[in-house]
Design a protein around this nucleic acid. Structure first.
Lengths: 271, 271
DNA sequence: GAAGACTATTGGTCAGACCATAGGCCCACC
DNA sequence: GGTGGGCCTATGGTCTGACCAATAGTCTTC
């Protein structure tokens, strides 16, 4: 189904004996070219910023037509591995995969794959956003805090004017993810907020007073971060996210999360 | 840089005033087609399993040549949105993005983007793998436990024979992620183990006795899961991951994580 | 009724051509 | 001498028309 080359980097651990023999024919020339270039990238023979030969040049080297080379370049470009410029000195430049492009892929997956339910998205977001709180506490800079407080101010104003929209909440959470100063975490967490915004917007249509507590909780969270108090910060964020989650979807999965208390900071109530 | 259409779904929240004016020309016909089809997908006008018209048919509808249509299909295919079959009754079938394909994208990003350091990858993995432990405790089925124990047995045998490789550890962790029974979490966590395997392999070259505690810790973790004891499970897993992390890279980022104790289960030692 | 040949549909590739774009270069002009 | 504009050329973007390869359905034959 997923036509991938013989060197599948995703599941290198193959302890069982299935798939010992992988198909010998990668019956698509463009895919073979993609695999070759990808390999060169992974081996470090091609480095970001370098420029591939021109399309007409690659045609000769690979012994295929320009159409085929172009399709290969399209695939690489879609994967964010090269970036193509036109005009003189144009061509395919090796580029590190951009967070945006990968994020779009993740968001597509979260939104479109029937394997992923809204409850699962919410749960994954919970794990991520709560898990980073201690890191956020430790790494928040003055600039981070100032920007977060600014977002809180904007939200208060919008709330007073009645112009508050869920996108503002999403922007706050995305900004919080940035405070972790970890590109991997940011890349992963960002795409979650697209689907989340849609869910929230629908939930808010049903009960317009829904988001009324949000901005205040955001501010309390920022204050806890400022005080470098991961316990309070986590508690506030957990309450905030759980309340939101329960509003979005009263699904059977919500209960286990609450019961098992996915991230349990030491609390007086803990047994 | 990232040539995306006017409807950018990744960052819908735009509170600042930058990028108010986005480029008016999406000067690539194939990209315009991709955007159109993507929109149809997001609006639900196209559903997984449906079949797009044939390439020659799409040519007429879009008023472009077959080359252009094919490049568009390549992009969609690379994004995992369609799957193309040849032969009679072949064509482009709408398919939900596969976890594998997205995972490859994430892995490319983690490996190739200079924005992501090995320390960040390790840290993100820590957040994820520890964050899911309570969920794993709650959801583990008998089958899950049996398979995990089987992996432990295999590891013990390999360890006794001296054939233990880091891929076996990665396989264990991937299997643990599956126990969360959350497709989103699994999709995210899977790609982390490719880069991890390489780091571990290098670390092990330096100190061959490195992985010797791994299998035993894995087994203790499974037993804690079996006992539905998230506290012990988290403690074991944290120790396991932190030890591994410190072996892989004694980076300055390791310290803050330990200090702030990213996921702090109630423990006697907690102040 | 079943096995095999035939056919129509559809993607995969090719060759050659033309256009649009954008750096680099040269030359006239100030 | 410096500068601005216009040409030049390399390069990607697209088109046309053709042929090959794979495959599901159908038809023929035994």
């Amino acid at each position: 189904m997923s036509q991938r080359g013989p060197e599948s980097p995703v599941s290198p651990a193959r302890t069982t004996t299935d798939e010992l023999f992988n198909p010998v024919s990668l019956n698509r020339a463009s895919q073979a070219i993609v695999d070759q270039i990808r390999l060169l990238l992974q081996n470090g023979h091609l480095r970001p910023g370098e420029r591939l030969p021109s399309e007409r040049d690659l045609c000769e080297r690979f012994g295929v037509s320009r159409v085929t080379v172009r399709e290969a370049l399209r695939i690489l470009e879609a994967g964010g591995l090269v970036s193509i410029k036109v005009g003189a000195r144009g061509g395919a430049y090796i580029t590190a995969p951009s967070s945006d492009r990968i994020g779009r892929g993740i968001e597509d997956y979260l939104r479109l794959s029937p394997a992923v339910t809204a409850a699962e998205v919410t749960e994954a977001r919970l794990v991520l956003e709560l898990g980073i709180v201690p890191i956020v506490c430790a790494r928040a800079t003055d600039e981070d805090l100032a920007e977060l407080l600014d977002l809180c101010d904007q939200a208060d104003v919008a709330m007073a004017e009645g112009t508050y929209v869920v996108e503002m909440s999403a922007a706050f959470h995305v900004r919080v993810a940035r405070v972790a100063h970890n590109a991997a975490i940011e890349m992963i967490l960002h795409p979650f907020h697209g689907p989340m915004v849609r869910s929230l917007r629908e939930a808010r249509k049903a009960s317009p007073t829904m988001g009324s507590h949000g901005p205040a909780e955001h501010r309390r969270f920022v204050e806890a971060i400022r005080d470098r108090d991961p316990y309070t910060a986590t508690t506030v964020m957990r309450a905030h996210l759980m309340r939101t989650a329960s509003l979005v979807k009263p699904s059977p999965l919500a209960a286990p999360i609450g019961e098992v208390s996915p991230i349990d900071l030491p609390s007086p109530a803990a047994s």
